[in-house]
Design a protein around this nucleic acid. Structure first.
Lengths: 176, 176
DNA sequence: CGTGAAATAGCAACGTG
DNA sequence: CACGTTGCTATTTCACG
């Protein structure tokens, strides 16, 4: 039932036109991905089969990538979190950093500011494991240096919110 | 059915002793949170009710925080991602940054290096919305300045992996 | 870990705008 | 003609033995 092409998303079209129902459904699934279609329908004002069809459409359109368990990192032995900024030259904007996907410690890979800098989110068992990971980074060609930001405590960590973008202002600007 | 205390995690105990079955179950749910207990059991070599009971245990122990849909940010109109580093003084390590949870744009809040610096993961509709968000940041007391890292492309973004921590070395170190 | 009752998912046909 | 609703059947969930 799992697609082998889960890594690649060929979204030819931006998959536009999510109406209010779609957003509510996505919002509900964001809070609990195991909600019943009947429960979702009851929450958004639709019948269960209607919700089911919309979920299929959202999946096919690429708006719904999938569902995942949210796991407490400490419980699985990875309490050490850090954001690693990687300076690299001639980093061919592509294939090379994909090797980092092989490390289960690496949760995020973003290129920042003209594919010369990369931001990594890395979660390890302890500082020593983080150090070993960093040493592995330097064997990649083009890596000039790294700067790590060790997380002391996490106050918020949640998935992408489907809700409408906030219409500011919420707080009045200071009078200067 | 949703707990009002989802924000607070009082894990008195590290909820130790996850055996191989627990980790496999968590791994399966990480790939697809809507898997059937029977499917999970078939994958890990357990019966459906056994999986069901273990999932309940993992949830009660705090190892399984919940399940969530993975949503394509572009499809919901938030293609602009940035990591914002906030410099603050006397930032009372706690309550004040919780106000940022009110912004749906803010997905992560981490304190880094002695609660004088905070790392934010912020997702907005466009650069203008990001600018407006940053202007709101400065109305908070104690905020000295911010440095933003705008993401150009995301190569990897996945939930916490339940798998065993990698036993290095995977790549031989250079001979110096 | 099996068993059984209650609930759910998924599909087909039908009705409505 | 697209989309939502209803009714039905196989599957799943979940407490119990």
């Amino acid at each position: 039932m799992n697609s082998k092409t889960e890594d690649v998303q060929l979204n030819d079209r931006p998959a536009r036109s999510l109406d209010a129902f779609d957003r509510k459904i996505l919002g509900a699934l964001t809070e609990d991905a195991r909600l019943t279609y009947a429960e979702i329908g009851q929450a958004v004002g639709l019948s269960a089969p209607a919700v089911h069809e919309r979920v299929k459409r959202l999946k096919a359109a690429g708006a719904l990538i999938g569902t995942a368990a949210r796991i407490d990192a400490t419980s699985v032995g990875k309490p050490f979190l850090a954001f690693v900024h990687v300076d690299a030259d001639g980093w061919g904007k592509s294939q090379r950093m994909m090797k980092l996907k092989a490390f289960p410690e690496v949760e995020e890979i973003h290129s920042v500011a003209g594919d010369t800098c990369v931001v990594l989110k890395v979660r390890t068992a302890n500082a020593q494991a983080m150090e070993q990971f960093l040493s592995q980074l330097y064997v990649l060609p083009g890596v000039r240096g790294t700067r790590s930001f060790v997380v002391l405590s996490t106050y918020l960590e949640r998935p992408v919110q489907a809700g409408i973008t906030t219409n500011w202002p919420l707080i009045p600007l200071p009078p200067e």
